[in-house]
Design a protein around this nucleic acid. Structure first.
Lengths: 99, 99
DNA sequence: CACCTAACTCTGCAAAACAGAGTAACATTC
DNA sequence: GAATGTTACTCTGTTTTGCAGAGTTAGGTG
């Protein structure tokens, strides 16, 4: 049996997997993320900080009316999440070999 | 966009995903798991207990020579892990739609 | 201006993950 | 067969992570 893949702990966490998947597809604001993920402010903040500390996050201040920050994955975040998805793919292939 | 899947925290954890994947394929002893996963005794013990507490684990005493326990997923463990793999599949499909 | 809400941020607690020391049972060596 | 070693766990304490809610600041609204 081929080796089991390892999983990047930054992404292999219930909330952050979903968070990263959202940002992987499109940049979003704090409140959009909060609503979609259905988590508390503090929790979302903590996860954003964690991604940020890893250099996986970018943010841009938008100043139309009320200022807000729009978050997205940084290039290295995209790359890392891609690698993570590859690992998931491998896992599926190993546990459920395609015909 | 279709809803993002949710992930069973019992399996969505770096060590336990790998542990469950191993047991999903074949029953194994404590030391085999320990070597394959390359983790400490205490850590493996904790994860086995956790799976056990969720009713996802079965164990059988084998008494050839030195007694040892052989661990495997219980029927409900198999079912739950299958569901988890389905969720991963959905995630991949959402983030990397097939052509 | 007074009040309201959105968009965060800060602090503390609870749970999870982890390491390493401890223990019991068998196996091995002399 | 006693001493020593090894396997197969188990127990305890520490570190890290996850989470909630209260606090803050800036802008919008009547």
């Amino acid at each position: 049996m081929a080796d089991l893949p390892k999983f990047d702990r930054m992404f292999h966490q219930a909330v952050r997997t979903r968070l990263a998947a959202l940002l992987y597809r499109e940049a979003s604001s704090f409140s959009d993320l909060k609503v979609t993920l259905a988590i508390t402010d503090g929790n979302l903040d903590a996860h954003l900080r964690k991604l940020s500390a890893a250099g996986y996050l970018q943010s841009e201040m938008v100043v139309e009316g009320r200022p807000r920050t729009v978050y997205s994955l940084s290039p290295s975040g995209i790359e890392a999440f891609d690698d993570y998805l590859d690992a998931l793919d491998e896992l599926l292939e190993l546990t459920r070999p395609a015909p």
